[in-house]
Design a protein around this nucleic acid. Structure first.
Lengths: 211, 211
DNA sequence: GCAAATTTTGACCGATTGGACAAACGTTAG
DNA sequence: CTAACGTTTGTCCAATCGGTCAAAATTTGC
């Protein structure tokens, strides 16, 4: 029942301020990376002094660590939901849709994650090789089952998952590029619906013209 | 004939040392981003003292700028080659293959670019909205022509290009994650061939099972 | 071989970094 | 009211940051 790291007792103010700091840190870390961000930046974004911030989080790394722990849970939730019940093609389509919605609604979280991976994942490598790999292997097995049953085409399930991650997260991580290329008209709010339509077709039928 | 920024006269040593610095800076910038990298790191990686490095590049930004200029040229080359002559499906397939080869052979360049975009592209925004947008619009028109001719399925050409960028660059930018998830066996040198096979099928036929 | 030009170095600068600390301030239970 | 506790602030610190500069070492043109 009791975990080795017992939950520390926190006052109401502590809970509120910690939340405020994490929100500010997400903003700063996601656009500058860990090394490129300063405690001052985060403190200012959170509307408090640096020593005050350090009262709630003793080290810069503690903030980042807390942020990453929370992130991984919500980030992997859509994949966890991918289930064997229901039509495979529908399951995959709704997974893609959910991931795209997360790129739209939580772009900072996506960029925070991308920053960490880009820099060699020094702080979450164990999680990748452990929890993440286990989960992906598990879902890859589910997908393989679908292939054996002839429900979807036979391919590499791992690379299929990668391609879903890549295409959806692209709209969060490379957002400024996407908007720059699409221009003011096509790059407006509708770009996510356009992306959803395109990805649905790509993963369903590919590009080969219908005979 | 003469460009406004005339090519500065450089000695043999200058050319060699500048190259050495750029190579070292590519290594450092691509893993730590601009703000997260220090001149000392680059100098040490290049095997020289900081003041010595600053003799060849007066400011940290100058190194990054030079790197980004070169990068964009080679990075967009594959897309430039995408041409109207030849079979559309073959053209697209070889574009995907070339991009995947670049992710394999020049991962640092890919990560350097990703870092810059992730952080809001503060130093190359004009290039994205200018040169890059122009090129993509041009190629999107070519692809649209193929669709009108019934050579490939009708979809959004811009998002098609995005999806090719995303899926291929994923293997450079998220390399540590890809290898962690695939594990020591499947994550070895063969992962790029597996990826190539998967992507070819995805973009050709999608996932729908063959009737 | 020698003078001029180029390259390298060590010492240094002001600004910023992550973080420590004690004092001051605020809040609350008795 | 007051003592205990939680919160906030100003000040300070050593380390590191990007960058300068003059002097020393080296290379180059003749």
């Amino acid at each position: 029942m009791t975990t080795s790291t017992q939950a520390p007792r926190r006052t109401r103010i502590q809970q509120e301020k910690r939340e405020l700091i994490l929100e500010a840190a997400l903003e700063v870390f996601s656009t500058s990376g860990f090394r490129g961000s300063t405690i001052d930046q985060i403190a200012e974004a959170a509307g408090m002094s640096k020593p005050n911030l350090l009262y709630y989080f003793r080290r810069k790394e503690d903030i980042h660590e807390t942020l990453m722990e929370r992130l991984l849970e919500t980030w992997l939730a859509p994949l966890r939901e991918l289930d064997d019940i229901g039509d495979p093609m529908t399951e995959l389509r709704s997974y893609i849709r959910r991931k795209l919605e997360m790129a739209r609604d939580f772009p900072r979280e996506s960029r925070l994650f991308a920053n960490e991976i880009l820099q060699g994942a020094p702080r979450i490598m164990p999680l990748l090789a452990g929890e993440l790999k286990t989960l992906v292997d598990e879902k890859a097995a589910v997908i393989k089952g679908w292939m054996r049953a002839g429900k979807i085409a036979r391919t590499d399930p791992w690379h299929l998952i990668f391609s879903i991650w890549a295409t959806t997260q692209h709209y969060a991580d490379f957002d400024v590029q996407v908007r720059a290329v699409l221009g003011p008209n096509r790059g407006g709010d509708g770009r996510f619906e356009d992306a959803a339509r395109f990805l649905e077709q790509l993963f369903l039928d590919g590009l080969k013209p219908k005979a």
